[in-house]
Design a protein around this nucleic acid. Structure first.
Length: 691
DNA sequence: GTTTCGTCACACAT
DNA sequence: CATGTGTGACGAAA
């Protein structure tokens, strides 16, 4: 056990302060950032992807919309990788500075000191040694070494093997993905979306299975996340295992949210289950040096300082079981890798772990984009032990940080008018008809349209829809519904939701408990009939007219709202549509429910749920005079919201409710989008695109 | 190839 | 509801 070193004394230490000063002056006198090729933002922000889509309530435009469906799902077999001009840039040996052939990583046995003055020795030797051994100048590495040399055409590798077919070990080949076209982006996004849907489906289903087997509450420490990732690893469904990507991961956007570390591994954003620094180890690196690729800022180290764009990040190691520093850190492993990444000007992905009460887990992980390591020094931490510190500075020109959006949204929920003094036209256009307020925001023009319609929280069905059905049947459960209850039977012997109200798997139709059941309103099988769970906001957008976003984070699979309007029969619709009114045809919505919980890549005998069977829907929804928030959602072919048909207040299969559920973890203030489907006349063209 | 080790998880108990 | 603690699975190193 080393003796405690007073924090303030170390700052006075000549060696440390001089070196720190020199390091600091280095970064100011030589404009390092200028010499690094500026990183163009490669990923198109989600909002921009929606730019050309028309407002959903303008159905005429919608029909004219020519947008191919997500090719991944619309064809039965995986399509060939559409990548044409994109490339993976290998980091060849030439891209890194030449080393002396015999250099090794410094793992100085004397790293642990108990005497105060010896810390400075450690600092000098470990650091200077670490740098000098690699042939560079101790404090001013060759600026040219920071440039990533463009790779000649013949060395470029195709990206076709992003999705593997069997379990693959982790590669050590460092690449950076560049020049992705719009189609490439769309493709990779769909791969990531699909992968994450499989992960979530496996995770919630394994929990549900265990509960079924052992009974609710008797399940011991079930780790659905571990189960899901393990199954997916065995099937080779982890992404980006064949290349170690420096920089952005294709298909992962800044602001994307994750609730499990394992999920970060599955998409390849961060490959360490618990460790905060991910890197290519020296033994696998082409030049024998470790290179860091991503870090997680999770608040686990007391010496971290997080100012958003600038992070003082603490290296790993030196902690006891209670996350207390107890020995000095060493310049090895991830610590050395970060230092080497700084030396070569290699950017790192930053993921923040943020405490998030009220979620399914206590923490949420946000991808915050790329940072450059600008500085690195040895310091004494608050507990008096030596720690390595790294100054990470966010690269400019990237989309806004997800973590700051989370923070802003939290403030907005509490004080909307303080945070946005201008633009709110209404703090609740539903006039308390919804369980939570629906805000209306326009800071672009004077349009106020949503104010002028009657707000209709639930769809109005014609009376005969109730009469035609055997609506007097319900379950007899008095406390809580179980898997053997009448309503569970109607759903094929299982409930559609888990105990958090998450939709487990999309179905042709979901039967919820209703007014004819004896169970209480809190019953787990009444998810979509109890109103909003997240605060929604209709907002004016230059690109799409109106759009909808949430002030709350929405979990994947969570209920959002109903798509409400007045139901018209085919005959009524025919008459009304001649006047050019706004009608929505439920049968035209793409069957996105089938993607939710789709596991054909896991089970070869997987078939899309066909029970309970649904007849073709033959009605329209009139949203011209009465509507709710849903009809302001924009269209997308990679939507984050799906339509699930639900019955609860009657059993008439001809007239289900259109309930909207989240297909992804939707960050607050990200635009919600629905696949309204494309008109039939587009089908041939669509096929030609897919083939 | 195999084993050991450490880790900014997670879930549940208290 | 914060803190404690047991089980865990991965990649890296030996």
């Amino acid at each position: 056990m080393g003796s405690l070193i007073p924090f303030q004394d170390l700052n006075l230490l000549p060696e440390s302060s001089s070196l720190a000063t020199m390091a600091a002056s280095t970064s100011t006198t030589t404009p390092i950032a200028m010499k690094i090729p500026k990183l163009e933002p490669k990923l198109e922000p989600f909002e921009e992807a929606l730019e050309t889509t028309p407002p959903p309530h303008n159905l005429q435009q919608l029909r004219e919309l020519e947008e191919p469906q997500d090719p991944f799902f619309s064809t039965p077999n995986p399509i060939p990788n559409p990548i044409s001009n994109s490339q993976l840039t290998p980091f060849t040996d030439q891209t890194l500075t030449p080393l002396s052939q015999n250099s090794t990583i410094s793992t100085d046995e004397n790293n642990v000191y108990s005497e105060f003055h010896r810390i400075s020795e450690l600092f000098k030797t470990a650091f200077a040694k670490g740098l000098q051994q690699y042939g560079g100048d101790v404090l001013v590495p060759d600026p040219d070494a920071r440039a990533i040399v463009p790779v000649p055409e013949e060395n470029q590798v195709s990206a076709a093997v992003i999705v593997a077919r069997k379990r693959i070990p982790r590669s050590s080949e460092l690449v950076r993905v560049t020049n992705l076209g719009v189609e490439d982006e769309r493709y990779f996004r769909s791969v990531v979306r699909r992968t994450r849907m499989i992960f979530d489906a496996l995770r919630v289903l394994s929990t549900a299975e265990e509960e079924k087997k052992h009974g609710v509450g008797n399940v011991k420490r079930l780790r659905g996340d571990l189960r899901a990732s393990s199954v997916m690893r065995d099937r080779g469904l982890w992404l980006n295992r064949d290349k170690r990507i420096v920089g952005s991961i294709p298909g992962v956007y800044i602001g994307d949210l994750f609730f499990f570390r394992m999920e970060l591994c599955v998409v390849g954003l961060h490959g360490q289950v618990q460790a905060g620094i991910d890197y290519v180890p020296a033994s696998q690196s082409s030049n024998g040096e470790p290179i860091a690729t991503s870090v997680i800022v999770s608040g686990g180290y007391e010496d971290d300082e997080d100012a958003g764009d600038v992070i003082i990040y603490t290296g790993h190691g030196g902690q006891d079981k209670f996350n207390k520093q107890c020995v000095h850190q060493k310049l090895e492993g991830g610590n050395l890798a970060l230092e080497r990444s700084m030396h070569y000007g290699i950017e790192v992905r930053v993921i923040r772990g943020i405490k998030f009460p009220g979620s399914i887990t206590t923490k949420v992980y946000v991808y915050d984009g790329l940072y450059r390591i600008m500085d690195c020094w040895f310091d004494v931490g608050k507990s008096g032990f030596g720690v390595y510190k790294y100054k990470l500075v966010r690269i400019e020109g990237q989309a806004e940080m997800g973590s700051s959006i989370l923070r802003f949204a939290a403030a907005l929920r509490a004080k909307p008018l303080t945070m946005r003094p201008v633009g709110y036209l209404s703090l609740d256009i539903s006039l308390q008809k919804e369980s939570l307020p629906v805000l209306l925001f326009n800071d672009i023009d004077s349009e106020q349209e949503p104010l002028y319609y009657d707000y209709l929280p639930r769809t109005v069905f014609p009376p005969f829809a109730f009469h035609q059905s055997g609506n007097g049947t319900g379950c007899e459960c008095t406390t809580s519904c179980a898997d053997d209850c009448f309503c569970a039977m109607k759903n094929g012997g299982e409930f559609a939701y888990d105990h958090n109200g998450i939709l487990l798997r999309g179905k042709p139709v979901v039967f919820e408990c209703g007014p004819f059941c004896r169970c209480p309103p809190q019953c787990r099988n009444r998810v979509s009939q109890n109103g909003l769970k997240s605060r929604l906001e209709v907002f004016r957008s230059r690109e799409t007219g109106w759009g909808v976003r949430s002030l709350d984070l929405i979990h994947a699979g969570a209920f959002i709202c109903e798509y409400a309007g007045v139901v018209l029969t085919r005959e009524q619709a025919h008459i009304i549509s001649m006047n050019g009114d706004n009608l929505v045809y439920p049968h035209r919505f793409s069957d996105r429910w089938a993607e939710w919980g789709e596991l054909s890549q896991i089970y070869s005998d997987y078939v899309r749920p066909s029970y309970p069977p649904m007849p073709p829907l033959d009605f329209a929804i009139d949203v011209s005079k009465m509507r709710n928030v849903a009809c302001y959602m924009t269209h997308s072919s990679t939507p984050n919201v799906l339509v699930q048909f639900v019955l609860y207040d009657h059993n008439n299969l001809m007239f289900p409710h259109l309930m909207l559920f989240a297909m992804e973890n939707i960050p607050p203030l990200r635009e919600l989008s629905l696949d309204y489907g494309v008109a039939e006349e587009w089908t041939p063209k669509q096929l030609s695109i897919c083939n």
